[in-house]
């Protein structure tokens, strides 16, 4: 008898509690890198060549069809700018919402964040493409390269190939070879690690 009474009390308790979990608030993924755009502008007045990697679901799997790749000409010098852009096209409502919230901080503007913490970031351009030379043209406060801005130079042996672009944070920028773009001793943690196929005109 006692048992059944307590059981009844339990049953009432159960009914009083919800059976449906409230919808979670979707986190504002302002850290997300959704787009990597590498723009190569040839010296003079040529048309820029654009490479783009688009990843709309964060840590999810990248759809290789969302890649845009282009071709470089031989014997040309390009000034290159890489830009990491957050959820620009993907979360327009969110962006609008953020603006309401607190003006415009660095939300989604990863380039700005990298510049602010230049001593802790560096891009590496890794390749063994014949006839291609990539040099850093920007520097942090310690005069070490960042890699947001570079120069790509091709000579007449250039025929294209794979270019791996890696962004590391919390790396050792003073380690041997790092300032020359050698990633071997850099350490740190990857933010970006992608490969573009560079074509040849």
């Amino acid at each position: 008898m006692k048992l059944s009474k307590i059981f009844a009390a339990l049953a009432i308790g159960v009914l009083a509690i919800s059976c449906d979990k409230d919808d979670p608030e979707v986190p504002n993924e302002n850290e997300l890198i959704a787009n990597v755009t590498l723009t190569l502008t040839p010296a003079g007045d040529g048309t820029p060549v654009v490479f783009q990697w688009h990843d709309e679901n964060g840590d999810g799997v990248v759809d290789p069809n969302e890649k845009i790749e282009g071709s470089l000409a031989t014997n040309t010098t390009y000034s290159a700018v890489i830009s990491l852009n957050g959820e620009e096209d993907d979360h327009e409502e969110d962006e609008a919402h953020e603006d309401h919230d607190h003006g415009h901080d660095h939300d989604g503007d990863v380039d700005e964040e990298i510049k602010d913490e230049a001593e802790a970031h560096q891009f590496f351009y890794i390749h063994n493409i014949a006839g291609l030379t990539i040099t850093y043209t920007d520097a942090d406060a310690n005069d070490n390269p960042i890699g947001l801005e570079t120069t790509f130079t091709t000579d007449d042996t250039y025929t294209g190939g794979g270019l791996q672009i890696v962004l590391r944070h919390e790396l050792n920028k003073f380690a041997s070879g790092v300032a020359n773009g050698d990633i071997t001793n850099a350490g740190g943690d990857n933010d970006v690690d992608i490969t573009f196929q560079l074509g040849s005109d």
Partner: peptide, 22 residues
């Protein structure tokens, strides 16, 4: 009888590895 309620705080700015559930 056990009732469990698990909630992620969205402050993380990252989609949760384990979803909210009860």
């Amino acid at each position: 009888y056990t009732f469990t309620d698990n909630t992620n705080n969205p402050e993380t700015g990252i989609l949760p590895l384990i979803p909210d559930y009860l």
